[in-house]
């Protein structure tokens, strides 16, 4: 027995058991989630495979609009975050500002706290509103067009961008800097103008990380409940909010809607995984030493 334990390979295998168990739990959880959405729900007696929930999505206008709304919000916030992060990163590299760690602080701010910040700043009686009043731009707090709980969920987007930009920046700055160190001199000697250098060389070599960061941001905001619940539109809610409400609802008829939304989330998850894998396979991943 002792000999067995001394065997390197055995120890290695044993040591990865705990994490494997957790991943198995994770995948089993996903499996159950998928299975339920196709109608197999042992506990309440349903055990036939059905596409009912899939059809419900196609039929249910409320859910359809919610899907589009959520998709747009997530897409826009992820896109803006990535674009801003690229602009800031290029700016920091060009001007050689290496000590900019304070820009990463939003990563340490939880989403519900970002919601609080939004409320403090953008509520009708919030700080910005007061500044507008004292500057004479508005005459009363009621006149302030708050971006909280607004029609287009602008507040939600701003909140996500606050954190998202910092996150993407933390990822791509290092990569861009590394690439810049190698290729900037080459481009400079070729008399390439800086803008062209960024477009032809710096940006394409960072593209993999940009895409993967985008996917991660998109996935998170698509499925996250906290922010849209707190500062999102209350009459036209986003998908995670609707889903959670239906999930908690004692009304039996709400369960199918919940499961339909669950199906949508699963589909989005699958799409993201496929794209992510494609990026990894085609990219510099295989020669890279750093994984992101």
């Amino acid at each position: 027995m002792k000999k067995l334990l001394e065997n390197r390979k055995v120890i290695r295998v044993l040591s990865i058991i705990p994490i494997t168990i957790l991943y198995l739990i994770l995948f089993y959880g996903i499996f159950i989630s998928i299975v339920r959405s196709f109608g197999i729900y042992e506990a309440i007696g349903l055990n036939k495979f059905t596409l009912k929930y899939l059809i419900d999505i196609i039929m249910n206008k409320e859910v359809q609009f919610a899907i589009i709304r959520t998709f747009v919000v997530s897409f826009v916030e992820a896109l803006i975050s990535v674009i801003l992060a690229v602009l800031i990163s290029v700016y920091l590299i060009k001007n050689d500002i290496t000590n900019h760690k304070v820009l990463y602080v939003p990563i340490a701010v939880p989403h519900i706290v970002v919601a609080m910040m939004m409320i403090l700043l953008f509520a009708q009686n919030g700080f910005i509103s007061r500044i507008f009043y004292h500057l004479g731009i508005i005459n009363d707090s009621q006149e302030f067009n708050s971006i909280l709980n607004d029609k287009y969920n602008i507040g939600v987007i701003v909140a996500y961008v606050f954190k998202g930009t910092a996150y993407v920046l933390s990822v791509i700055y290092l990569i861009m800097k590394k690439n810049d160190y190698r290729y900037f001199e080459v481009a400079k000697l070729m008399n390439v103008k800086y803008g062209r250098y960024v477009r032809d060389i710096l940006l394409p070599t960072s593209m993999d990380s940009l895409i993967t960061s985008f996917l991660i941001l998109f996935s998170f905001s698509f499925g996250a409940y906290e922010l849209p619940y707190m500062i999102g539109n209350t009459s036209n809610k986003l998908l995670p909010v609707i889903a959670y409400e239906k999930h908690l609802s004692p009304n039996l008829y709400d369960k199918p809607i919940f499961l339909s939304i669950n199906l949508v989330m699963i589909v989005i998850g699958v799409i993201i995984i496929v794209i992510y894998k494609k990026v990894l396979d085609n990219g510099y991943f295989k020669k890279q030493k750093h994984y992101i």
Partner: peptide, 14 residues
Amino acid sequence: EMSLCFQDSRLFPN
């Protein structure tokens, strides 16, 4: 006009 060939080549990977 000048041209420099770096030791580590530095070909553009994209």
